[in-house]
């Protein structure tokens, strides 16, 4: 399935990547997607080792959340606005 993945702030800089269009064939959970991405290289281990948050279609979600075709998934550090 085709999904869009976006990265923000410190994580975006560490990965050197802002956005990928990803043909994902794994188990349809955020947890499984984190592990698939973490295999891309050392910097990507932040997706399973750190405190990176996840959102699906602009809503924060937990690791057991289900991803569907066409979703926009985002990963980012804990927020610091205000």
């Amino acid at each position: 399935m085709q999904i869009n993945i976006r990265f923000f702030a410190l994580l975006r800089e560490q990965l050197g990547c802002e956005h990928i269009e990803f043909d994902y064939q794994g188990e349809r959970t955020i947890a499984a997607l984190r592990h698939t991405l973490a295999a891309h290289g050392d910097a990507w281990l932040a997706l399973i080792n750190g405190n990176t948050l996840a959102a699906i279609n602009h809503t924060l979600c937990q690791d057991h959340a289900i991803i569907s075709e066409g979703d926009e998934v985002a990963f980012f550090p804990p927020v610091t606005g205000g």
């Binding site: 702030a9 606005g81 205000g82």
Partner: peptide, 27 residues
Amino acid sequence: LMDNLKTTAPLWKKQLSGDTQHWLEAK
């Protein structure tokens, strides 16, 4: 609203101080 904005809205601050810069961590 302010308490929850700070912990849930997807905004991030990078601090610039002289020649250095770093992303602030959540408190």
